[in-house]
Amino acid sequence: MREKEGLTALGNKDTKYKSEYAPEVLESFSNKHPDRDYFVKFNCPEFTTLCPITGQPDFATIYISYVPDKRLVESKTLKLYLFSFRNEGCFHEDVVNIIVNDLIKLLSPKYIEVWGKFLPRGGLSIDPYCNYGKPGTRWEQIAWDRLSHHDMYPEEIHNR
């Protein structure tokens, strides 16, 4: 089955951990329920990247939620992909947009959102959010609604 789907990382004992941004590691497989809308959510509480100016590490929890269409992301390759940001210099806002763009390219989902909750550095935390709804579908409007109401009820933050 793995070969049929073209999955190479799942079950592979010789996993290579890229130390630079590597969208090519992402793999997908067929959605067995394309006629049903449902959310898939990933939480990555150990995400790291580097400040592109100072080179200091930035730590975050990255939340990825999407409504698949025909393809789903394979979770091991998603972990390898997120790990590849470890030595990449990226502003927080850029990180969430890069992740959304790469997953749109891979999956063509009905809907996707990425929220980065970065730990404070210098007394300031940054929590960028972006989303996408497939144009010409009801998900396009849902994306706008979620974006425009996204932070209406902000969470209480106690220094994370």
Results as ranks from 00 to 15, higher is better:
residue 125 S to I: 00
residue 21 Y to R: 11
residue 37 D to P: 04
residue 72 L to W: 00
residue 91 F to H: 12
residue 20 E to S: 14
residue 144 W to G: 08
residue 91 F to R: 07
residue 77 T to L: 11
residue 136 G to W: 03
residue 66 Y to R: 11
residue 130 C to T: 15
residue 79 K to L: 08
residue 88 E to P: 00
residue 81 Y to C: 02
residue 92 H to G: 05
residue 23 P to N: 03
residue 87 N to W: 12
residue 24 E to V: 04
residue 23 P to I: 09
residue 63 Y to D: 06
residue 55 G to R: 10
residue 141 Q to H: 11
residue 56 Q to M: 11
residue 131 N to I: 02
residue 74 E to I: 11
residue 119 L to Q: 13
residue 148 S to A: 13
residue 125 S to L: 10
residue 127 D to I: 00
residue 68 P to N: 07
residue 97 N to G: 03
residue 139 W to V: 02
residue 136 G to K: 06
residue 89 G to W: 12
residue 127 D to P: 00
residue 146 R to C: 08
residue 148 S to N: 15
residue 21 Y to I: 13
residue 101 N to F: 02
residue 70 K to H: 11
residue 58 D to M: 10
residue 132 Y to P: 12
residue 26 L to N: 02
residue 35 D to T: 04
residue 142 I to D: 09
residue 27 E to P: 03
residue 52 P to V: 12
residue 45 P to S: 00
residue 95 V to Y: 01
residue 115 W to C: 03
residue 129 Y to R: 00
residue 62 I to Q: 00
residue 43 N to W: 10
residue 97 N to W: 01
residue 135 P to N: 07
residue 75 S to K: 09
residue 116 G to N: 05
residue 106 L to Y: 09
residue 112 I to V: 04
residue 70 K to V: 12
residue 118 F to R: 09
residue 152 M to F: 05
residue 58 D to E: 11
residue 74 E to F: 12
residue 72 L to I: 08
residue 43 N to I: 13
residue 85 F to V: 13
residue 118 F to T: 03
residue 87 N to M: 12
residue 54 T to S: 15
residue 108 S to I: 02
residue 23 P to W: 03
residue 63 Y to G: 00
residue 36 R to D: 11
residue 38 Y to P: 12
residue 79 K to V: 02
residue 97 N to Y: 01
residue 141 Q to Y: 01
residue 77 T to H: 07
residue 87 N to C: 06
residue 99 I to M: 09
residue 78 L to S: 06
residue 92 H to L: 05
residue 124 L to Y: 04
residue 54 T to L: 07
residue 49 T to M: 04
residue 49 T to D: 01
residue 65 S to N: 10
residue 22 A to Q: 02
residue 87 N to K: 14
residue 149 H to V: 10
residue 86 R to L: 08
residue 41 K to N: 04
residue 113 E to P: 03
residue 145 D to F: 12
residue 138 R to I: 14
residue 125 S to R: 11
residue 81 Y to F: 15
residue 149 H to S: 15
residue 85 F to R: 12
residue 132 Y to S: 08
residue 141 Q to T: 09
residue 42 F to S: 06
